[in-house]
């Protein structure tokens, strides 16, 4: 289906015009919830148009790190972020950066499918509309749904509620919704954890398909999933203060077959976590 890739995109090349290799990088990132430090000193360079998996035991801060890439932590009143997240040479936490602009370019898919209580069409079209999209909405909706591998299942019922779909379809609808605003990066927070194995498999296939166009960062509890789907894996764990830190980061095959850290090996072999 080459026709689905025809709409103009803000950043097509894998290395951007100013020669940046990475899609987004965290530099000395610290996130606090009130007095509690959730993660410390995260340095993470996310490769362009690759799938990067964030894994680790519960409470290790991987979701916190994920949400700091599009300033979703701002919505938590007690959250405070230190350090830098560089995106196109700009720290997204600078005072002159509007989080609304960041979130449009760094989209997000959540753990629990959360379509709007609107029609399938409106679910996809809404984000584009509020962001001032002036092109052909019908075409955009079709393209987004095709990219999310949902078009054939819903093309005859675009005006039914998003809630009429099954859980897996709802999650793909959420992915279509995220794609419709044409982000450069898609953050996925355990996108398949609420789904059955077959729906999970479809989401994973979809992620591999989307990698051709988007940079994907995915938090997952499921190590097999990380191994199956991702190109790079970041392993997080917690120190004695329950503060999360990045223990190891590298190409997925390397990290799973030949971990450099003892704790990584223990985790991926199922000895803790």
């Amino acid at each position: 289906m080459p026709d689905i890739l025809t709409l103009p995109r803000p950043s097509a090349p894998s290395i951007s015009a100013n020669g940046e290799r990475y899609a987004i990088t965290a530099e000395n990132l610290n996130v606090y919830y009130g007095a509690f430090q959730a993660v410390r000193d995260i340095n993470l360079k996310i490769e362009r148009q690759k799938i990067t998996a964030l894994i680790g035991p519960s409470g290790c801060g991987k979701s916190t790190v994920l949400r700091s890439f599009n300033r979703m932590n701002d919505l938590i009143p007690v959250a405070r972020t230190e350090g830098r997240v560089m995106f196109h040479g700009k720290n997204i936490y600078d005072a002159d950066v509007d989080p609304v602009e960041v979130r449009r370019r760094v989209g997000m898919v959540f753990q629990k499918p959360n379509p709007f209580p609107k029609s399938i069409y409106e679910n996809v079209a809404w984000g584009a509309r509020i962001n001032g999209y002036r092109g052909d909405l019908d075409a955009l909706v079709e393209q987004s749904l095709r990219q999310a591998a949902l078009w054939d299942e819903v093309k005859d019922k675009l005006h039914q509620s998003g809630y009429s779909l099954s859980g897996g379809q709802q999650q793909r609808l959420c992915i279509a919704r995220a794609i419709a605003v044409q982000p450069e990066i898609i953050l996925m927070d355990e996108p398949a954890s609420a789904l059955d194995p077959i729906a999970t498999l479809r989401i994973e296939e979809l992620m591999r398909e989307l990698r051709k166009e988007y940079t994907i960062i995915v938090v997952t509890h499921n190590m097999q999933q990380a191994a199956r789907v991702s190109d790079y894996t970041a392993f997080f764990t917690v120190d004695e203060h329950r503060t999360g830190y990045l223990a190891e980061y590298g190409p997925t095959t390397e990290l799973f077959t030949n971990p450099r850290q003892k704790i990584t090996e223990d985790y991926i072999t199922g000895r803790f976590g």
């Binding site: 599009n70 979703m72 449009r104 370019r105 959540f110 959360n114 709007f116 809404w126 995220a178 605003v181």
Partner: peptide, 23 residues
């Protein structure tokens, strides 16, 4: 109103006002 709907809206780059008014 479920928090997930607000998050989805903000995640698409909606402003606070758009989130309140549309969702």
């Amino acid at each position: 109103v479920p928090q997930g709907i607000r998050q989805a809206s903000y995640g698409l780059g909606a402003t606070r006002w758009q989130t309140v008014w549309h969702h």
